[in-house]
Design a protein around this nucleic acid. Structure first.
Length: 650
RNA sequence: GCUGCUGUAGCUCAGAGGUAGAGCACUCCCUUGGUAAGGGAGAGGUCGAGAGUUCGAUUCUCUCCAGCAGCACCA
């Protein structure tokens, strides 16, 4: 029999008969290891202890002490156990797929009646019973005809379709958890009793399309989470509770920032507090853009369909546009307009006014562009995904050979803004050419390499999103991670060869001939609405001082202090600080509580002592202690603190 | 858009086939209190919209609208 040589993590090598299983390898090292073993890592791949090993390689035996493989196995086995529990409870239910995802797994089922929350409890209970049976997990490799025959005779068309989708040269592997059988690539645990029965929870049911295709059947997906032990599960559930407290929809209401209502779905009524944040952020961006060499413009909201036809939006984007028809009294036909979903075509109109020279390029044009998009109702989410929003949009008209330098300048610009706003780390995703695209391969080659090298020159290695570029050009996406680990795509930077062509933009080159500029579409915050949502959640409502809608509340402790309260408020306002007086007939405890809950960063309390000494009692949000400071001093201090980050002298 | 769930006072929520309740918030009165809720009184609702069943519907049924979770979408 042929021999193979396996290398262990400590560098030792041993030889085995080809076809040895990882379990046998573990046994050969130590019976105690074999007892604890759950899987193996072979040349970086996660493998089942029961699979035969046929070639030389580097092997590591995993136990429950190795969190990564352990969690993957646990979650994967839980998926199977859940599917088994469901089929034991309702034998007519068809199982489809059930992968491991972050923190847990899901499994998609085909069942007529919807699963209810009560059903989830029943399923959980059943799963615990199954785990207690400590059933052996078995696996076999089947050939394709046998597997197809098996599922056809069991009338399981979903599985047959899955098999059809698996490339012909891959082995088909079957797993049994007890008597329950599923097609699965593995690996799995050896015994269902190895699952931590107290460290999982079924979370929710929701619809999901078969194979992610909205034209196909809607299945029912049950989500579960699982961890190595009960404490990790508890910690996860606690984290979810904390995340819910940061929800911008809840904080937006509590802080009186904005509201939304039925009559304007997906659109925001900004209250004075929220609008203060918005305008403060917009002022900041306007200063940044001026410093960054942009010219600011403003363009129409309602634009005739002719322009959208020319730009291609009418054909490609119509179902997302708000169409407005107007009866013109003397016209034969109704005038058809659309609310602008994007600003780019209008910006080209401005570019096209007059004759542009190569000396005008690169031309950086910016607009706080209000856009309206008819987003699908199910996509709406608070102020993060809306139908009416304002982009910090910009278009750079440049020559092809300026793409790289303009990209480099932009990355620097964006980094500076993110840094000022407290997001030091961000991810960059690079999307290259999709299958259907405009423009020659040669042009794509240049554009892609320009984006990549500019990004790398900035010291950033982008993640690749193969084939995810727009049809008109490759793009970079800038993704922020918030305090609880969620990703948000905000910034974008896209090369566009198509729109200048469609809208006939041109400039006169050094050679005296007309040339086509390239357009770079770019947005940094993305939309003010989404970005403010992110800021709220990132800071759990405790916005940085310069952005806080109400920066200071001056509260009287006794009404005899009211005059001094107003004097302080006036002085703070004169120093440019957003200050309010609270001279209501309430105790200081009440006022402290209320303004703390409203996330006011600084509370100045005034009693008779402060009046006499011309001081203030300063209480900062999050601090239980207060300090006493002089009137003049606190005004100066707070005025400095209120300076936006881009205006702080370095 | 799809599947499921939800919609009762400004907010959070209870309730029931016989036209509604709590706490907080709000208004007024008392209280001038030193750092996270002082006391009392009062006002406030076409029970998301429309239709149907019923003697009677906010409650049951249907349709629509909106929200929530997920999927799909996301130039």
């Amino acid at each position: 029999m042929a021999q193979i040589s396996l290398t262990f993590p400590d560098g030792n090598q041993r030889s085995y008969d080809a076809g040895v299983t990882a379990m046998e390898v573990a046994q050969s090292i130590a019976p105690s290891l074999a007892k604890k073993a759950i899987s193996a890592t072979l040349d970086g791949a996660h493998v089942d202890l029961a699979w035969p090993i046929e070639a030389d390689g580097a092997i590591a035996i995993n136990t429950m002490k190795d969190p990564e493989p352990a969690l993957e196995l646990i979650r994967h086995d839980f998926a199977h156990i859940m599917a088994r529990a469901v089929q034991e409870l309702w034998p007519e239910v068809q199982v489809t797929i059930g992968p491991v995802i972050a923190n847990g797994w899901y499994y998609d089922f085909d069942r007529k009646e919807p699963f209810t929350p009560e059903d989830l409890e029943v399923i959980e209970k059943k799963m615990k019973e199954i785990i207690n049976l400590r059933d052996e997990v078995r696996t076999e490799v089947w050939d394709r005809p046998r597997a197809i025959e098996h599922y056809k005779s069991n009338n399981e068309p979903y599985k047959v379709e899955l098999i059809d989708a698996i490339p012909g040269d891959e082995p088909l592997r079957m797993y049994w958890h007890g008597d329950w059988q599923d097609l699965c690539r593995g690996p799995h645990l050896q015994n269902t009793g190895q699952l931590p029965a107290d460290a999982f929870k079924l979370m929710s049911v929701a619809g999901a399309y078969w194979r992610g295709d909205s034209d196909r059947a809607m299945l029912q997906r049950i989500y579960g989470v699982a961890f190595l032990n009960r404490n990790d599960l508890k910690a996860h559930l606690h984290m979810l509770e904390e995340a819910a407290k940061r929800d911008h929809r809840k904080l937006g209401r509590e802080m009186d920032l904005f509201h939304m209502q039925e009559e304007a779905p997906g659109q925001i009524f900004w209250h004075p507090n929220g609008w203060t944040v918005y305008t403060e952020l917009q002022d900041f961006m306007r200063r940044k853009q001026r410093a960054g060499g942009y010219v600011e413009v403003n363009t129409p909201q309602v634009v005739d369909r002719k322009l959208w036809e020319a730009s291609g939006h009418w054909e490609k984007y119509q179902e997302n546009m708000f169409i407005v028809e107007v009866d013109e009294e003397h016209a034969r036909e109704k005038a058809v307009n659309a609310l602008k979903p994007m600003n780019c075509p209008c910006h080209v109109q401005i570019f096209n006014q007059g004759i542009k020279s190569y000396r005008d390029l690169p031309l950086r044009m910016a607009e706080f562009g209000s856009c309206a998009r008819y987003e699908p109702s199910g996509a709406l989410h608070g102020i993060m995904r809306v139908r009416g929003f304002t982009q910090d949009d910009g278009h750079i008209f440049c020559r092809e050979d300026q793409i790289e330098s303009e990209t480099a300048v932009y990355i620097e610009f964006l980094s500076s803004i993110y840094k000022d706003l407290g997001f030091e780390n961000f991810k960059v995703k690079f999307s290259d050419r999709p299958e259907t695209r405009a423009g020659s391969d040669e042009v794509w080659d240049k554009a892609e390499s320009a984006l990549l090298s500019a990004t790398r020159a900035a010291g950033i290695e982008p993640e690749l999103n193969p084939g995810e570029g727009a049809f008109y050009g490759p793009k970079l996406e800038f993704v922020l991670t918030d305090a609880i680990g969620r990703d948000w795509q905000c910034g974008t930077h896209q090369v566009d060869f198509v729109l200048p062509e469609r809208l006939d933009a041109s400039y006169i080159g050094e050679d005296g001939n007309k040339h086509r500029p390239v357009m770079l579409h770019r947005a940094t915050l993305g939309s003010f609405e989404r970005f403010i949502g992110i800021l709220i959640e990132e800071h759990a409502g405790k916005l940085p001082f310069w952005l806080a809608p109400r920066q200071v509340v001056v509260a009287s402790i006794v009404s005899a202090a009211d005059d001094y309260v107003h004097e302080v408020v006036d002085a703070l306002r004169a120093a440019g600080i957003r200050a309010e007086a609270d001279t209501r007939n309430e105790k200081i405890n009440y006022k402290v509580r209320e303004h703390s809950l409203a996330k006011v960063p600084v509370l100045l309390a005034i009693g008779m002592r402060e009046v006499e000494e011309r001081t203030l009692s300063v209480r900062r949000l999050g601090n239980k202690q207060s300090t006493t400071e002089s009137f003049d001093n606190i005004v100066k201090t707070l005025a400095v603190e209120a300076t936006p980050p881009d205006m702080i002298p370095s």
